[in-house]
Design a protein around this nucleic acid. Structure first.
Length: 145
RNA sequence: CCAGGGGGCCGGGCAGCCGCGUUAUUUUAGGAUACCGAGGAAAGUCCGGGCUCCACGAAACAAGGGUGGCGGGUAACGCCCGCCGGGCUUCAAUAUCGCAAGAUGGCGAGGUCAAGGGAUAGUGCCACAGAGAGCAAACCGCCGAACUCGUUCGGUAAGGGUGAAAGGGUGCGGUAAGAGCGCACCGCGUGACCGGCAACGGGAACGGCAUGGUAAACCCCACCUGGAGCAAGGCCAAAUAGGGGCGGCGCGCCAAGAGCCUAGGCUUGAGGCAGAUGCGUUUCGCAUCGACCGCCCGGGUUGGCUGCUUGAGCCGUGUGGCAACAUACGGCCUAGAGGAAUGGCUGCCCUUGCGGAUCGGGUCCACCCACAGAAAUGAGGGGGGAAACCACCCGCAAGACAGAACCCGGCUUACAGGCCCCCUGGCGAU
RNA sequence: UGGGGCGUCGCCAAGUGGUAAGGCACCGCUUUUUGGUAGCGGCAUUCGCAGGUUCGAUCCCUGCCGCCCCAG
């Protein structure tokens, strides 16, 4: 009974950069991240938003239109591996990071995904954001790369 | 060897580094170590059960049900096995064979398909076409009669035509023409008797055609079904709010007055007013109640534990059975997670495809040598050439469908590639 | 987990056993100097897919595929 209390208190009070980033589970945190910084890459979309001293956290969103359960689970596993690798050094401190899977994300090579994630994190660190996705056909105004 | 059909099985392997999940051990803690870690469909959620709670005297009715030949298997099933009856087996595609036969057609074997009770229990429907489509019907035709001589009346289902379907078929007799009107055979119905557990098969004799299709149209008959679902259910139980009981205390607004303190505020507060409920016939009167504190009780939201994986289990051998399957013995333990764990790489091997390379093998072509032969030719040897084939070598690419969520038995659907067995046909050799 | 509904031309849709209405859009012609309007004509060959029942299926039955909704 005393274990979860003693574990929950230091994670909320002390900022712990070397420890593993925590996972976002609440739906409202996912919804709130929509109003933060948004960086789109060919394999994924990165959302980042300051969370007020809760440490660097991450969440993964893969919708049902990506594929069946096998494809979705594999995409989540690869994104998790990417975030564990990148967030301790390159992540934004005290931010929520949300990765949203896109259609072609499963077939991309892992190393190119890694470099794209680092580029997206540095772009988010500079504070730049891509315009949010609108309905309908928008021409490629924000030409990246 | 080739082609086709049916059934069953496997569904990449071995290592290394960094990581993930459960459990166990250990550590003050962070953590460390060890074991194990998705499927044949885990899927769709279409059937049948186990399990849990609720309900329940029985029967009948209602409602629902693709349950519907017979026998067996099974915990059970709408599943499986065997059999019975039926359809198809047509030029070809993708399986045919035998008998008989002038051809078509036929019979049988084999193969294959199917939700295969009831159409005299009742109701409905059968478009268009056609004269007529359901207790039959007269358009043309055929026959008879009448007369005004091309019309009317009557008889007739053999023929024409329409249609998916036209109320038994063929032949002979018969008749004005016809008609089961009569007869023979076939079909149909009833059916003594025989065989079979049964479905059903064979069938003496009789009837004398009366009875179209559709029930995956309504329906009838027989049979089956209580409801909900692991977010079932059980246990523990915080903060806050709210419920009940007991005890203390005594209230919303105004407020005389009293106490405290620096003008002003704080505390207390007789009394009045207002509200709710109850009683008395309304005005009205009477009675009760409200806020807060303490203790106890019950419910149980977030949460935690459990249900949770040893089970109609899997493997091997034997026995019984045509089979589905059953049974005896031996061995084995094989995921149990909170929206839920398998990822990032590397090497070698395996399978498949493509490309390159051209050493080897068989195959083919002509030539030479020796043997047999009249010759054609046959088998053996030698060196030569070749589009394509096989094996070896190198390089590249690919390795499907798809992720347990309480658990089983089925069904359905998806699936790269490979292996095995059985059956049918063709070709070659013996 | 349990339950319900839909799929018909590019779009909206009627039809529910007997040759698939209609509107918008599109195409062609006419009217007009031109455009619009108006008029006439055309436009469904897998009625989501595959089987079955039936003489005959968009309709009836079964199985798939896709989409949507409800309860917890």
């Amino acid at each position: 009974m005393t274990l979860p209390v003693s574990r929950a208190i230091p994670s909320t009070v002390t900022t712990s950069p070397p420890s593993k980033p925590t996972v976002i589970c609440q739906r409202r945190d996912f919804l709130a991240a929509n109003s933060g910084i948004r960086v789109a890459r060919p394999g994924f979309v990165l959302l980042a938003r300051p969370n007020g001293g809760l440490g660097t956290r991450y969440g993964i969103t893969v919708t049902k239109r990506i594929g069946n359960a096998v494809v979705r689970n594999r995409m989540k596993r690869r994104f998790r591996e990417l975030l564990w690798d990148a967030l301790p050094e390159a992540g934004l401190p005290d931010h929520d990071h949300i990765l949203i899977g896109r259609d072609r994300g499963v077939e991309r090579d892992f190393t190119t995904l890694k470099t794209e994630l680092h580029a997206a994190l540095t772009r988010a660190l500079e504070g730049k954001t891509d315009p949010p996705r609108k309905h309908g056909n928008r021409p490629r105004t924000g030409n990246r790369r």
